[in-house]
């Protein structure tokens, strides 16, 4: 390769314009953006948005009382943390999320496996699960407060109901799709039903289980917000509602960002976990 500066370049290899009977045209190419480049573009976009937001608020293009501003939110966060208000709220919310999502996980995995494995149980349970999965379960909130009051239990029930059904549905679907060939291999080696479940059905269901947990996670966060908005008004959700009532939009934004951050962290953890469980697939 001793191509000098004047060496003719191949127009196709260069990915540029090709001249042909149809004239000059840009032929489609696969566009690749490297990871650092993606990160840089994303950071610039975020910073630009924050700067514009701050500038618009300072110049009163937008009502700072309603729209707040990055600096106001920053200061609000500082005082919420130093007074311990945010810490208490986050602890309450984390407790609710932990208990509610924990129950959903336990019940969702258990019921999902049984439903996916046993066709009779499936036939009995499927109508309920399908209806409840399709229905906006948040609509049940008033009924739940009638049944279990407005305490922590009611909040847990709300979180549980929002999160459990996507988990059940996905886990059951994963267990149900049993690889026929592998099933026969297990049978030929005298495998029992439990053997098949343990060595074929469950490992094969891992991708569905993970996608169920991911959906359940997102739903559980929505459940937590709803439960804290309408029942008890505590935790980060309660903080947002109270701040809204008093027109303290900066505090409300702090709460929203806390939820957004928590969601990002939790999905990140799940993603790392999924990659570990899937390393045989690559």
């Amino acid at each position: 390769m001793i191509a000098g500066p004047t060496a003719p370049t191949d127009p196709l290899a260069a990915g540029g314009a090709a001249r042909g009977p149809l004239g000059r045209r840009r032929v489609a190419r696969i566009r690749v953006v490297s990871r650092p480049e993606r990160l840089a573009i994303g950071t610039v976009a975020i910073v630009a948005m924050l700067v514009f937001w701050q500038f618009a608020a300072d110049e009163h293009w937008i009502n700072p009382l309603a729209a707040s501003s990055p600096s106001a939110i920053w200061h609000a966060a500082g005082s919420l943390i130093s007074t311990g208000v945010l810490g208490k709220a986050v602890a309450e919310t984390a407790g609710l999320f932990g208990v509610g999502f924990g129950f959903s996980l336990l019940v969702g995995l258990g019921v999902g496996i049984v439903v996916g494995w046993n066709p009779r149980v499936d036939a009995a349970v499927d109508p309920f699960v399908s209806i409840l999965y399709a229905a906006p379960r948040i609509a049940l909130t008033p009924l739940i407060t009638v049944w279990v009051g407005i305490g922590f239990t009611a909040q847990v029930v709300i979180v549980f109901l929002t999160a459990v059904f996507p988990i059940i549905i996905n886990v059951a679907a994963g267990v149900r799709t049993l690889d026929r060939n592998c099933f026969n291999v297990a049978r030929s080696f005298l495998g029992t039903n439990i053997d098949v479940l343990r060595t074929v059905a469950l490992p094969g269901a891992v991708p569905s289980i993970i996608s169920g947990v991911r959906q359940g996670l997102a739903q559980a966060l929505i459940g937590v917000v709803v439960a804290e908005y309408f029942v008890g008004q505590n935790g980060v959700g309660g903080l947002i509602v109270a701040s809204g009532f008093t027109l303290n939009t900066a505090n409300a934004f702090v709460g929203v960002f806390v939820f957004a951050g928590a969601s990002l962290v939790l999905t990140g953890i799940l993603k790392a976990f999924a990659q570990r469980a899937d390393r045989w697939r690559i």
């Binding site: 690889d179 060939n181 592998c182 026969n184 291999v185 297990a186 030929s188 080696f189 005298l190 495998g191 053997d195 060595t199 074929v200 490992p203 094969g204 891992v206 045989w280 697939r281």
Partner: peptide, 28 residues
């Protein structure tokens, strides 16, 4: 007393070669 070599390999994709070969011993 019988073992089947299937038309499709039908290996368990989440098991290594060793663990796939041990599979029959494990179930029997």
């Amino acid at each position: 007393d019988r073992a089947v070599v299937f038309q499709h390999a039908s290996l368990l994709p989440w098991r290594t070669v060793r663990r796939n070969v041990e599979y029959g011993l494990e179930l029997e």
